[in-house]
Nucleic acid binder design. Structure first.
Lengths: 198, 198
DNA sequence: CCTAAAATAGACCCGCAAGTCCAGAATCCT
DNA sequence: AGGATTCTGGACTTGCGGGTCTATTTTAGG
């Protein structure tokens, strides 16, 4: 892809991704058409296929990558500094708040279910996200172990994996029921577990 | 729906649901067309719309209800008899096995994400499933508390909610990455938590 | 400036799949 | 038996949306 891209072109391309992401967040992947994206971003089909020659699928993948970034960004700066119990609590609150605000639309989740089956590229996006997320939690737990606030015997890697799963599940349930009760229970129970292990 | 339904008619209707469910399990909701279902179940468009006047959406909802039943059925008899640690372990193994076999296709999950946004009926299906699932786990925990194997102070309801979320998340990650590591970590950590609390 | 490349516009094509319709076969009921 | 009802088949319509094509405008840069 030795593609020449002027500043204006790059801006348009980004505008398309952002607009598509917003549209998807509001109305879902399935009901979002390329014409919708064009209307919203004040672009034309020509431009869309100019910047995404492989069409819809390529655009969705770009959106998925962007949304995956957001997932982690929105947990910062807490996620990167899980060195005290207060920090863990702040992180927990940030996660709950973020997903309560997003409500029942999880663009990333739907994108993955739509793309994941066919494209290995989409699977890679999810894989990397889960990996990074788990890595951050792992680092947090390990740090707390070093400072003696969590028992050293605890398997930090497995516990981090379990926490990622718990949050993911809480979000999924929030998505389909509208209630954040499960997400909160999952987070609180996870934190309680970390405390208990000591 | 004061609809007359002969025995033959009811059988055909069921055959359509089963065939659609199988097709969806194999190839996904998005790529399953009504013609696919007709071909597989040796029926015609006429029949399909005869039994599901509201078309595709109504059929998908019926399939979702059926799949929701399966989710709980496949965890039995373990889920109903969580009275010993061995039983919990057997349940854990059953869940892991079931989803490993299902692989990356979670018909229910995709059905919900496709239907959930629009239809409140689909939301109700999910809601009921989560509720019943959580109820069973709650009962199991409460029983273990009564027999003194789990600390009485533990909030059984919230813990059950957290476990449902954890399993759900593990399944979601299994779906998009193909690895059951997170599901297993989530289940094992949950059980460890129950044991630890004592 | 002037030219080549990139950006933009939007009309058009085309296939697919949901949904319609009607005719004919099987069945129920009394 | 026979009329009503339900069941079945499949050809047909229709709309939507992804993707193509070409003409025009804008920008880069020498």
């Amino acid at each position: 892809m030795a593609r020449a891209l002027t500043a204006k072109g790059a801006a348009t391309r980004q505008r398309i991704i952002d607009g598509a992401a917003a549209e998807i967040r509001e109305r879902g992947v399935l009901t979002t058409t390329l014409d919708d994206v064009c209307r919203r971003t004040a672009t034309s089909k020509g431009q869309l296929f100019h910047y995404f020659p492989d069409g819809r699928e390529q655009l969705l993948l770009a959106v998925a990558e962007r949304e995956a970034e957001r997932v982690l960004e929105d947990q910062q700066p807490h996620l990167g500094r899980l060195t005290t119990w207060d920090a863990w609590q702040a992180w927990r609150d940030a996660v709950v708040l973020r997903y309560q605000q997003q409500g029942m639309n999880c663009p990333l989740g739907v994108l993955i279910t739509e793309l994941g089956r066919s494209t290995p590229a989409a699977q890679a996006v999810t894989g990397r996200l889960v990996e990074r997320w788990q890595y951050e939690l792992h680092a947090g737990i390990a740090g707390m172990q070093r400072s003696g606030r969590i028992a050293a015997e605890l398997d930090a890697g497995r516990t981090a994996a379990a926490m990622v799963a718990a949050v993911q599940g809480g979000v999924t349930i929030l998505m389909s029921t509208g209630s954040s009760a499960h997400l909160e229970a999952a987070l609180d129970t996870s934190l309680l577990f970390l405390r208990l292990s000591r």
